[in-house]
Write a protein that binds this DNA or RNA. Structure first.
Length: 477
RNA sequence: GGCGCGGUAGCCAAGUGGUAAGGCCGGGCUCUGCAAAAGCCCCAUGCGUCGGUUCAAUUCCGACCCGCGCCUCCA
């Protein structure tokens, strides 16, 4: 049974299958603009795309995942100048940070991560094709704009009828459009090439229309064309990109190549709210992964939280949600541990890739997998996992092995790595010393001293967890 | 105004034309120097409101109320 997913363009549930004659499933995802650390909202989208890719792979599809790096635009140029660095040095730094965060969150590396700067010739060629075909025009200052009204299908993704807005002087929000400022023929036309401005500094490239830099939308069209061709299987991104970015991508690519059917499927993920509010710098609720790790949460807990809501519903990200995720993950680990014990396996033997390659059974997790395959219903799938794990009946070694095969594959698809040694931040020396003293006091049965020391440790923001033969220190949340 | 998404227990969150998965929290018990952890048990006659269709609706249809997103470069 193939994975079935809701498609934004057709608004239908559609199976994700290999096209006739193709051996790989081409998937393009709009990547980050590397001008600072990506926040958890960005990572919700990237993580959901990762789960989709993994799910398709477990389903047996060979996926070619392309995710670009936007390393030239207003924000990167401004950021580089503010930092007193070259654009290249500046974006390289943030690209590396992005990769480090991806790795921590367990995101698989895309097969191709094209850089916009490195695809400027392809972008110029595409703009030239659009000019040649009458879909774009050059303005007085040497900028090039896409002529929206030359594309009869424009608006098909976001389901907006642009033919009725032919001569409008206001945009659809009722605000005046200052079309003159950009020398555009129509308010809905958008820039393909931006002529060189003093603010750009050294960041300009040659083109048939003079020096300048590419517009944002053309990057993705040029890079998807270069790496996946004029048509491919699936395009993903945050819901905010649906219009205008993705609408423009369709128009650019289809008009430049003359081939219809840019992306066969559109996968948009809903946004993340933080404590019930939209994320914004002014509200101070723009969390990065580092900030959450500093609060004592593991990247895996963050990952669980990010995927625990359905991708088409906005997710309210809260600290309590992270704590919930911690408990839930622990529950899955204990359940898996129990199955491993029944099966006679070690944790090491539960290593995901081995399970994927060698096992075909789904055991009692067959239903959980079916749920996941249906519109990437991660919360439903997790519910099924817990339902099976809660079963109190004794399981045979054979049953446990089949179950682990299924559970292993599902957890791989979700990208939830169990039994990882997530140490978290280590305790400061004074806390470590107090813990050692308390342990000694406890061994000496000096419980009054032990209790007093526990109190001190707690006041310093740490929790001491006693075991039979030792103890752990965890940062209090 | 246009387009789209959603309103399910204290919180989070699935789902179905036939009588509400799951996680967290909370309560009880077991275990335990203390504190945790863990294990077991309990926890929505109810699914925004009002109508309609139906033997039967939270699930379909209609209206309404409320929240949210996008509407030119925010994943």
């Amino acid at each position: 049974m193939p994975v079935v997913l809701h498609d934004t363009l057709s608004r239908e549930m559609r199976p994700l299958l290999l096209k006739a004659g193709k051996s790989t499933f081409g998937m393009y995802c709009c990547g980050p603009t590397v001008y600072g650390p990506a926040h958890i909202g960005n990572f919700r989208t990237f993580t959901l795309q990762d789960v989709l890719r993994r799910t398709l792979e477990v389903d047996g599809l060979k996926v070619k995942h392309v995710r670009n790096i936007t390393d030239v635009d207003d924000k990167t140029i401004r950021g580089a100048q503010a930092a007193g660095q070259s654009l290249n040095d500046f974006t390289k730094k943030w690209t590396e940070k992005f990769h480090a965060d991806c790795k921590a969150l367990g995101l698989l590396t895309p097969q191709v991560e094209p850089s916009a700067v490195e695809h400027i010739p392809q972008q110029v060629a595409m703009i030239q094709a659009l000019v040649d075909r009458g879909h774009a025009y050059v303005s007085k200052d040497g900028s090039v704009y896409f002529k929206v009204h030359s594309c009869k299908d424009y608006g098909k993704l976001s389901h907006i009828d642009f033919s009725k807005q032919e001569t409008q002087a206001t945009n659809s929000a009722g605000e005046a459009n200052d079309a003159d400022e950009y020398e555009r023929e129509s308010a809905s036309d958008f820039a393909l090439w931006k002529s060189r401005k003093p603010d750009d500094g050294n960041n300009f490239w040659p083109s048939p229309w003079g020096e300048g830099r590419p517009g944002w939308h053309i990057e993705c069209s040029a890079m998807s064309l270069a790496h996946l061709g004029a048509t491919f299987d699936l395009h993903g991104g945050g819901i905010d990109l649906c219009f205008p970015h993705h609408e423009n991508e369709i128009a650019q690519t289809e008009c430049a190549t003359g081939i219809n059917g840019f992306a066969a499927h559109w996968f948009h993920s809903a946004h993340l709210l933080v404590e019930g509010e939209k994320m914004s710098k002014s509200k101070g609720n723009l969390f990065t992964l580092d900030e959450l790790v500093a609060k004592g949460f593991s990247p895996m807990e963050v990952r669980y939280t990010l995927i625990a809501g359905h991708y088409r519903t906005s997710l309210n990200f809260t600290m309590k949600g992270l704590e919930d995720a911690r408990s839930a993950l622990g529950k899955i680990e204990r359940g898996a541990e129990k199955l491993l014990h029944a099966a006679g396996f070690t944790q090491k033997e539960f290593a995901m890739p081995a399970v994927i390659e060698k096992q075909t059974s789904w055991g009692r997790f067959a239903h959980a997998w079916e749920v996941l395959q249906h519109d990437l219903n991660i919360p439903g799938c997790l519910g099924q996992i817990f339902t099976v794990l809660a079963d109190k009946h004794e399981v045979s070694a054979q049953q446990a092995r089949e179950d682990l095969s299924g559970l292993g594959k599902i957890l791989y698809a979700l990208g939830l790595a169990l039994f990882a040694d997530v140490a978290g931040p280590s305790a400061p020396a004074n806390v470590v010393a107090l813990a050692a003293q308390r342990w000694a006091a406890k061994q000496a049965k000096d419980f009054a001293a032990a209790d007093r020391l526990r109190k001190e440790i707690t006041e310093l923001g740490w929790t001491m967890l006693d075991h039979k033969d030792g103890y752990d220190l965890k940062k209090s949340v």
